[in-house]
Design a protein around this nucleic acid. Structure first.
Lengths: 240, 240
DNA sequence: GTCTATAGGCTGATAGAC
DNA sequence: GTCTATCAGCCTATAGAC
């Protein structure tokens, strides 16, 4: 099981979590770059797997969405599961890198925590829109064939958060909190919000116009979480 | 994957990934109460759908787990989807009732919010263990055939939380927060924690004993969330 | 590398005996 | 109400032409 070396060269077309999905104009079966075929499958798979899960996505739907022949999934990725694994790696690796970079920040802990939340939000809303749903789906399905491969990523992210929290406690800016539970509540709220974005958009869209309320934007929610966490963790002046 | 021809009377060997599962002692195909059949299917379905999702659960697995003939799913529930819908209703209705009852509480808002979190935790960890995973799965899959039926439940729960939060703001105990975002962050963190409990247990179980850390208990996490939310929402003395 | 055609397995549902 | 037997449809994967 080699480390997947996916050509990260092509930036995944930034389409929001709301995902009306501007279908990539891939009508033509004409000859084209094989790297483009791989890329189209990775892109289509990220969208469909995030939305419908592994079992809910057929190779037929993947190929159609990518504008590519079904057999090419096996040729390029060794099968549907191989494609899924490649997408998992391509999705989580950039997240890991951006998060781990936060360890070195010179900012005080509360600012670093705000930064972590901002990085999560930016990744989820702009860079890797499939990331929150894939994370949640993997963690919810204990028998998933790929959940064990996820562990290194989870460990690195948890480690970074723990690092920030412990520094905050040491510096007297955070009250004494359990780092794991704090991590779970923060990441859980963020992942839930972004993973359920499309469904929220749908629910709002189907409401009678009179009652229609705009769902919160990604940026607003990031700010909400930044405030909630820093205030909720803050060491209160009076206490020891 | 070799299909060994075993006499089908033999109880299916402990299967399922999650599956410690106190198998209901249903050896005999003898006549029995039809209500018991329905109940066994509802129970088995709640476990399997929560763990593997709708697409990931076959009628065969459902029937085997329930110790019941496959054809009875169609007879009693009109098919796999009918069973799923019945489980959805049976899972969410008790949650709705317990949550809505909180509207009438005479307690101050911060106490009421703590109570809401406790009710969620108790429901998720003891009464309806399938509830968090089913909630998350439904909300993550926008096209789910049942997601629209969920709306009344979501509206009632959100309404209750909003009610508590607005009362807290009015009474000067909470700072001015967006009720929807606050609801999403709180329920999101709770649902994520409980839905991912089984996976967390697995990950811990597969760790080398030296590094093994106990995952947080349900009660500890409830307390964590109670503190995080009440402190994070508290109106700070100095400010207006 | 890409495509077509097809194999072979599994799925959910039901007809009909009991 | 329960069970066995069976079917049609869809699914993933692949052989082989180009």
């Amino acid at each position: 099981m080699a480390r997947v070396t996916i050509s990260e060269t092509v930036p995944p077309a930034a389409d929001g979590p709301g995902a009306a999905a501007p279908r990539p104009s891939r009508r033509r079966p004409e000859r084209r770059d094989p790297a483009a075929t791989r890329e189209a499958l990775l892109q289509a798979g990220a969208e469909l797997f995030a939305l419908h899960g592994f079992d809910g996505t057929s190779t037929d739907a993947l190929a159609r969405r990518a504008g590519v022949n079904k057999a090419l999934i096996s040729y390029h990725f060794g099968g549907k599961l191989g494609l899924y694994r490649a997408i998992l790696a391509a999705t989580f690796e950039p997240v890991r890198e951006r998060v781990v970079a936060l360890r070195a920040t010179p900012q005080p802990a509360p600012e670093a925590l705000r930064e972590f939340i901002a990085v999560f939000g930016e990744t989820a809303s702009r860079r890797q829109p499939a990331f929150p749903a894939m994370l949640v789906r993997e963690l919810i399905t204990p028998g998933s064939p790929a959940v064990s491969e996820l562990r290194p990523y989870l460990v690195d992210v948890l480690g970074t958060v723990r690092h920030i929290l412990e520094r905050g406690v040491r510096d007297g800016q955070f009250r004494e909190v359990d780092p794991l539970m704090t991590h779970l509540s923060m990441v859980g709220a963020l992942a839930f919000f972004f993973a359920t974005g499309p469904a929220r958009a749908r629910i709002v869209a189907s409401m009678p116009p009179a009652l229609k309320v705009q769902p919160p934007s990604a940026d607003a929610f990031v700010r909400h979480m930044q405030d909630l966490m820093t205030l909720g963790l803050a060491k209160r002046p009076g206490r020891s």
